[in-house]
Computed example of a mutant assay.
Amino acid sequence: MMDVTLKITDRQGQFHEIQAPTDMNMNLMEVVRMYELAEEGTIGICGGMAMCASCQCYVLNDVTLPEKSDDEEAMLWEAFNVKGNSRLGCQIHITPEIDGLEIELAPE
């Protein structure tokens, strides 16, 4: 088992450095929920299906992430507060390759 370090700034501007397991097939949205870094009912509303953008986040550093799927691109096209570095947390799986990822949760 390997854990990765993630650096997350929550919606109140508070910084969190957390450890996330790579062996549980989790995604970033699920980790944020697990650590209760967003108010319940405000993140992952669609259950991680890339259909609501409630888990939108801004990638702050140069960690290589998988390309956006067509579904993720389409959802971000319709979402609010989208920036060039926006991603959906539900589409970023916790793998050893994302160790050190820094994100900021987008506003609700």
Score class of each variant (00 low, 15 high):
Met1Glu: 09
Met1Val: 10
Met1Thr: 07
Asp3Pro: 08
Thr9Gln: 15
Thr9Gly: 06
Gln12Thr: 10
Gln14Arg: 13
Gln14Asn: 12
Met26Ala: 09
Val31Ser: 01
Val32Thr: 02
Val32Glu: 00
Glu36His: 14
Glu36Met: 09
Glu40Trp: 06
Ile43Phe: 07
Ile45Ser: 09
Cys46His: 05
Cys46Lys: 07
Cys46Trp: 12
Gly47Tyr: 04
Gly47Phe: 05
Gly48Gln: 02
Gly48Tyr: 00
Ala50Glu: 14
Met51Phe: 10
Ala53Phe: 12
Ala53Pro: 08
Ser54Lys: 12
Cys57Lys: 13
Cys57Pro: 08
Leu60Met: 15
Val63Asn: 03
Glu67Met: 14
Glu67Trp: 07
Ser69Trp: 10
Glu72Pro: 04
Ala74Lys: 11
Trp77Gly: 06
Ala79Asn: 04
Ala79Val: 11
Phe80Leu: 12
Lys83Ser: 07
Lys83Asp: 11
Asn85Val: 10
Asn85Gly: 03
Arg87Tyr: 05
Leu88Arg: 04
Leu88Asn: 02
Gly89Cys: 12
His93Lys: 15
Thr95His: 10
Glu97Val: 01
Glu97Pro: 10
Ile98Met: 07
Asp99Met: 05
Glu102His: 02
Glu102Arg: 08
Glu104Asn: 01
Glu104Tyr: 01
Leu105Gln: 02
Leu105Arg: 03
Pro107Gly: 07
Pro107Asp: 11
Pro107Val: 04
